[in-house]
Design a protein around this nucleic acid. Structure first.
Lengths: 255, 255
DNA sequence: CGGAAATTTGAGCAATTTCAACATGGGTGG
DNA sequence: CCACCCATGTTGAAATTGCTCAAATTTCCG
């Protein structure tokens, strides 16, 4: 973001057009954002902690936020690294505990739109369009997690890293020929659940997968296929089949 | 289930009281289930396949269903093993693709309640209570996936297996002192993303974690702690803190 | 220009997979 | 009722891969 002059309208615009809100009409958008405020955090500031009562949910409008958990056995797991337009606490919003399950820290200087959860939740349920959008959001989130689990099991580290870099490129609309890593390698390693050393040793192997990393520069040798190599679990088409031996059970409810 | 006489009312009752419907009033429940039918599948029958158009979503009322994906690189990943009361295709319902991302196969003879997705989705959005319940469901689902990712990274295989068995026990209200495995070990291994051999070799190590497995019999040596050892990512309480250096940005929307 | 932080590289170790052989067990057909 | 067979699970040993600890570089920044 431009330094010096703070363009709050621009930042607000980002929030307003963040999924799942982008599809709503402008009147509805206004409603959803009443009561929300824009906050600024400095690098390394804690935005919320594990166990904190859940009072706001968050839309990152500028900068980078690390979201992670500390497990009982002392490890620290980076769940995600959020940039422009990301929504935090999606799932917590609809878990009854009413607490944060993760900790969020500003990796860089950051601007965050914060919306009180209670009114937001209530408005959401009253608007079918918004509810659907949010359901879609959560569904995507689940799907993404599942994809990650699958990758961890079926792909070797080099494939996982290559896939991550392609995803990163795609997700943020970066140059498909290559880009500069937006954050530290150690953060990526943590995000991928591997050690920094392993990550580092993996980089040279990426050439076999059409990716070169030199310093913080990432280059794709096959720009066209960047999108294609991002995992989609694409199911191949099959001829339509009859239900094998499913038997429908006639049923009549007894009042 | 009792053999011979098919108690369809009982099976229907299960479906009706499956989350997220249990909280709705009975009139609303009726509405949600109109258009649904009970199907019977024999062991090994395919219920739906990856890539199939998404026409129904499913509630397992009796038996065991394996849900899995075939990845591009030829592996087969068991996403979940569903028993009594489980809901399938939760997330697909709200992904726009309108196709199944997984394949479901009956592991045993099975009864499944099938509801057409379109009317169900529409009704869901019109009912704030139902929408909230479903949002809660998806949120839990996401959370569970995340927990799994964390386990895979922070725990060793023995811990993961022990955790799984405890979870299984708890989730299905089995005897906290021990139970009989409801399905094959190879299925469990697949579900946990490990090889059958690894699973097999891990079983003797479970004693260190208070679990003994002999054949298909599982015994917990510490019944009291079964619940406690199920992962919850329980965040410890901390004293309330001030926001560190967050700065609120005054903002006024320019019409 | 220094010193600290971040990353790379090396060597040995631990754990899981792989391939292969062996055991178990239930079920079926004679 | 028994022998055999196939599915399932167990056990061994080698190969692979990521991790840990340590040291050497490189990059940042003040």
């Amino acid at each position: 973001m431009a330094q010096g002059i703070l363009d709050t309208n621009h930042l607000h615009h980002i929030a307003l057009n963040t999924l799942p809100f982008s599809g709503l009409d402008s009147r509805e958008k206004e409603t959803f954002f009443s009561g929300g405020n824009l906050y600024s955090y400095k690098k390394k500031d804690v935005i919320f902690r594990q166990g904190d009562p859940l009072e706001y949910f968050y839309i990152v409008t500028d900068g980078i936020v690390q979201e992670f958990t500390r497990t009982n056995n002392g490890h620290e797991i980076t769940q995600d690294i959020h940039m422009n337009g990301a929504i935090l606490c999606k799932a917590e919003l609809f878990l009854q505990e009413g607490i944060h399950h993760t900790e969020a820290v500003a990796v860089s200087d950051v601007y965050v739109m914060e919306l009180p959860v209670k009114p937001f939740r209530e408005r959401l349920l009253k608007s079918p369009a918004a509810a659907q959008a949010f359901l879609h959001l959560l569904a995507q989130h689940s799907f993404a997690k599942q994809t990650e689990i699958e990758q961890k099991v079926t792909m070797d580290t080099a494939e996982i890293v290559a896939s991550f870099l392609r995803q990163l490129c795609k997700e943020h609309g970066l140059n498909p020929r290559g880009f500069t890593l937006p954050y530290k390698k150690s953060l990526i390693a943590s995000r991928l659940g591997i050690e920094l050393e392993t990550f580092s040793r993996t980089l040279p192997k990426l050439k076999k997968h059409g990716v070169t990393v030199k310093g913080t520069q990432v280059i794709f040798h096959d720009p066209a296929s960047t999108a294609a190599n991002v995992p989609t679990s694409a199911p191949e088409k099959r001829p339509i089949q009859e239900r094998p031996s499913a038997v429908i059970i006639p049923w009549r409810r007894v009042a």
